[in-house]
Design a protein around this nucleic acid. Structure first.
Length: 606
RNA sequence: GCUGAUGUAGCUCAGCUGGCUAGAGCACUUGAUUCGUAAUCAAGAGGUCACGGGUUCGAGUCCCGUCAUCAGCUCCA
């Protein structure tokens, strides 16, 4: 059995490479072996980035390099070249990398003063830009063959370790992440200790692509986009609309049970309303503005104003609070063309929006209520989720005392429910602190959907009031909250989470009937009608195709329950059910079947 | 918005360096078949090659612009 080889060490919580260890000694060092541990991958990928840079330099001599860090599942390097580099060039670069790696070049390290480094890279403005960002006065350089680069490390001892890597994509990236700055070329890649792990990773990426909601949405006929109609404007096809309708109904009842009042505001309001709210100034660039009869109007990017104006129409007593208004609010936002992405990022979408008007003292109980609501919804779909509190930013309005009350109310609400949460210091909106809810999907990806935001700003700007127990006018606090976030994004996530195999209660077509012969269609029709009576959608596949073909079609549509009906079933008043979830077939009495589905769908009461 | 790539039938794709009436599979329509759990057979229909301009004797193919999509960047439900 060969001994595993050491490629670096972990010392005092830091990874140091063998080069550094040789220089500063290595007491209390834990060896890092050449394998796929997170520490090892950190080192391997860092060196893979350098190897890629070396290959690029060899192929494009005028290349200038910026930074090349390790990221979540790989690495990248930002650089500038005069030539255009496309996806087709990645193969070429990979090949060059392999050639260089095979030369088994030692990776050496030496350190110099910043002044010396400035001098050394005098003709390289990108390296100078890198140094502008580094505070250390002593900088290190790693050299392998004829290539060297300013770098903190850690690196492998030799390029010979680099065998299992793959360049995945080429893209543009702003220098320093500043959209006003120059755009550099960025190539992403990944690397592992062995070929098998690389292959497994690439397979996983392929699997994820199969679950892509855009692909499944097309296959199942859920939604579509139309170039000629405009970017980021989704169309819901019958099946998608049925699915969405199910979700809307479940959630509507859930809101009503929790004392929310349905309201509805107009899609378009005078621009002055948006000036009062502050959206015109702060969000104007993302708004669609138009002119009607010489007056400027704006399509709503948020639903708050409608709810506020409804609130203000009447005088409210403290006894009414907390007052909860909800709306499936359609909003329009002018997102940048490059960020549109299927249903995950669109220009028109519907939020499951609510605004809760309450006293400062009620913030906590209200938030606890909302958290319970969120938990019910997440559990229903089997999502894990995380919470994050964002606190007061530098630029904020409202008294520190109120901020303090609100922020601690949010924290206490989470603490008392035993929630673990992160804190984003200074990440709140200027008008108040918030809790963001982040869903983790079946592939471990995190999505921001729900949000609970405390707002002191809008009640002030719109001079909202309630009458307290001493018959005095008070200003209410407003809590914005969404649970799904938007139907569009949430359904995209659901689709990928379930890979299109939606649970019975939201499935667009929970039941497909497959009559064995023509003479069995009448019986199917009778059962379908019985289901329709219970608001359950079904289809009858009585086309002129073989039985096997029709079952296959139903399977490909990911139908939860396929019901085959022939002489036997008609005679016995029964059904033969093929259950997608259980992957088995069973027979049951027809009326029991209807009852069964009815129970399955009403169980989702939340 | 920026960088790079892409756009051929409802879907997935072929169409080499410009050269006959633009192809395939699936889906669709019609006919035959009436079938017991993942593809019955046959025939047919379907495309102003994203849109607009240009180069050329000739453009799906080359060039420019617009629109849209994809991978990122910057920003967000």
């Amino acid at each position: 059995m060969e001994e595993k080889e050491i490629i670096a060490y972990r010392k005092d919580g830091q990874i140091i490479d063998t080069q550094t260890a040789a220089e500063i000694g290595c007491e209390n060092c834990e060896p890092i072996y050449f394998d796929n541990s997170p520490d090892a991958l950190e080192v391997i990928r860092h060196s893979a980035a350098h190897l890629m840079a070396q290959a690029i330099k060899a192929l494009y001599p005028d290349a200038r390099f910026f930074v090349g860090p390790v990221v979540e599942d790989g690495f990248y390097y930002d650089f500038r070249v005069s030539e255009k580099i496309g996806d087709g060039d990645l193969k070429k670069i990979e090949k060059k990398m392999q050639q260089i790696a095979k030369q088994k070049l030692a990776i050496e390290r030496y350190c110099i003063s910043k002044a010396e480094a400035r001098e050394k890279f005098a003709d390289d403005d990108l390296k100078q830009a890198v140094m502008d960002r580094i505070e250390d006065e002593r900088l290190c350089v790693y050299r392998q063959g004829d290539f060297e680069d300013l770098c903190r490390g850690p690196h492998l001892p030799n390029t010979k370790w680099l065998k299992s890597f793959k360049l995945t994509r080429v893209a543009g990236a702003y220098l320093g992440g500043d959209s006003n700055a120059e755009m550099l070329t960025r190539i992403y890649g990944t690397a592992f200790a062995d070929k098998e792990s690389l292959k497994a990773y690439l397979t996983m990426i392929e699997e994820a692509k199969k679950r892509d909601h855009r692909k499944i949405g097309t296959e199942l006929g859920l939604f579509m986009f139309e170039d000629e109609a405009g970017a980021g404007l989704p169309f819901w096809m019958p099946k998608g609309a049925r699915l969405r309708g199910r979700l809307e109904q479940i959630l509507y009842r859930a809101h009503r049970r929790r004392g929310y009042q349905p309201v509805r505001g107009p899609e378009i309001l005078k621009a002055d309303m948006w000036r009062t709210s502050g959206h015109y100034a702060c969000y104007g660039e993302n708004m669609y503005l138009t002119e009607i009869d010489g007056q400027e109007y704006g399509l709503k990017p948020m639903n708050c104003i409608g709810h506020i104006l409804i609130y203000k129409k009447e005088i409210h007593s403290y006894r009414e609070l907390p007052l909860k208004y909800f709306e499936y609010g359609v909003v329009h936002r002018h997102e940048q063309s490059g960020v549109l992405h299927g249903l995950l990022r669109v220009r028109e979408f519907t939020q499951d929006d609510a605004h809760i008007f309450c006293t400062p003292a009620q913030i906590k109980p209200v938030v606890i209520d909302v958290l319970e609501f969120v938990d019910k919804v997440m559990k229903l779909f089997g999502f894990d989720y995380e919470m994050e509190i964002s606190t007061k930013p530098d630029k904020a309005i409202g008294d520190d005392a109120i901020w303090e009350t609100a922020t601690s109310a949010l924290k206490e609400a989470l603490d008392e429910n035993g929630f673990v949460y992160g804190i984003d210091e200074g990440g709140g909106a200027f008008y108040g602190p918030k809790i963001d809810i982040k869903i983790t999907d079946a592939l471990g990806r995190r999505w921001q959907c729900g949000t609970i935001q405390v707002d002191f700003n809008l009640p002030e700007r719109f001079e909202m009031e309630y009458i307290d127990e001493n018959n005095e006018r008070r200003r209410p606090v407003m809590i914005h909250r969404a649970i799904l976030g938007s139907f569009e994004r949430f359904i995209a996530i659901l689709t990928e989470h379930y890979a299109g195999e939606f649970p019975l209660f939201i499935s667009p077509t929970p039941v497909v009937f497959v009559p064995v012969g023509e003479e069995h269609t009448t019986y199917c029709r009778k059962l379908a009608d019985a289901l329709a009576e219970e608001d359950i959608d079904s289809e009858i596949y009585d086309r002129n195709e073989s039985l096997a073909k029709r079952i296959r079609t139903a399977e490909k549509q990911k139908t939860p329950l396929i019901v085959v009906v022939g002489d036997e079933e008609v005679q016995k008043e029964s059904v033969a059910v093929r259950d997608r979830r259980k992957r088995e077939q069973y027979e049951m009495a027809a009326d029991a079947f209807v009852q069964f589905i009815k129970e399955q769908t009403s169980e989702v009461r939340i």
